[in-house]
């Protein structure tokens, strides 16, 4: 295949991945990596490298908008980034030393798990009072909601921190934002309101991905020719996706279609990993 053909195919696929990623809230990496490895038979390390770069682009772009609105809690983000960057470093190191088919199986499992999680109805259980540790770390905050300001307290800081180390490791190992895991750490464990947890998670994804991207870069796994169509495509797709999201009210059937696509990708990754084809 010539470079121009491959670049065009990857660009179109990445647009689709970015669109799907922003509409489901799962991120572009989840579609990019199966596409590059299963369909185009590209080495999974190259796929992870390219995906990480696209993750940095989309999350930084989205975070820019959220930060200005004042919903993102920069202290929670900064504090938990200690955990995610340590995890990302460990994950990238792990990826260089374990066999590629093991990475494929883990990818499939995390993908399936995230798809299920995105579908479960969540119940918000935020508190107005935080725990003593949260108070010491000044994690409690408030966010604007229309005309009023809603105050919230943060619980279970230690548990959330541990969960974030895991989320960072998965991000570094698989080259995804692992936003689903970050949101669980903040929603379910630390009881942070949804609006704050999703935007703060987005804020952290870029730094987390950068901590492992520097390792992939130096090992030669971030290839300019391959990353170029992926980054541009995913970003374009995500931009289109965010425009659609503003204009359509929660379209249930669309989410079902996406979830089926994602479930199929997960099964394929696990199957190809187990049979050693990746």
């Amino acid at each position: 295949m010539s470079i121009i053909t491959l670049t065009l195919i990857i660009f179109i696929g990445s647009c689709f991945a970015g669109l799907l990623g922003s509409l489901t809230g799962l991120g572009g990496g989840f579609v990019i990596i199966p596409m590059l490895t299963l369909i185009l038979h590209i080495d999974i390390h190259y796929a992870i490298g390219a995906s990480l770069v696209s993750v940095i682009a989309t999350s930084s772009g989205a975070a820019a908008a959220y930060v200005k609105e004042g919903i993102t809690n920069m202290r929670i983000g900064m504090f938990l980034e200690i955990a995610t960057t340590v995890g990302a470093f460990a994950g990238a190191m792990l990826a260089l030393h374990i066999q590629t088919h093991v990475i494929a199986v883990i990818f499939g499992l995390i993908l399936a798990f995230s798809a299920v999680m995105s579908f479960l109805k969540k119940v918000e259980t935020a508190f107005t009072e935080g725990s003593p540790a949260a108070k010491k770390l000044r994690l409690n905050g408030s966010y604007p909601n229309g005309d009023e300001t809603i105050k919230y307290g943060v619980r279970n800081v230690g548990g959330g921190f541990l969960m974030m180390i895991f989320a960072g490791t998965i991000s570094g190992l698989l080259g995804i934002g692992s936003g689903a895991l970050k949101v669980i750490a903040m929603d379910t464990v630390m009881r942070i309101p949804f609006k704050v947890s999703t935007t703060t998670s987005n804020f952290m994804i870029g730094v987390t991905a950068a901590a492992s991207a520097v390792i992939y870069l130096q090992r030669g796994y971030i290839d300019p020719g391959l990353s170029m169509p992926v980054v541009i495509g995913v970003l374009a797709g995500a931009l289109i996706g965010s425009k659609i999201l503003v204009h359509t009210q929660s379209s249930g059937w669309l989410r079902w279609v996406f979830t089926i696509v994602i479930a199929l990708l997960a099964v394929q990754m696990i199957y190809n990993g187990i049979t050693g084809k990746i």
């Binding site: 295949m1 010539s2 470079i3 670049t7 290839d223 020719g225």
Partner: peptide
Amino acid sequence: GHATAGYTTF
């Protein structure tokens, strides 16, 4: 653009 692409192996 018209060279052959090769990313199957590192």
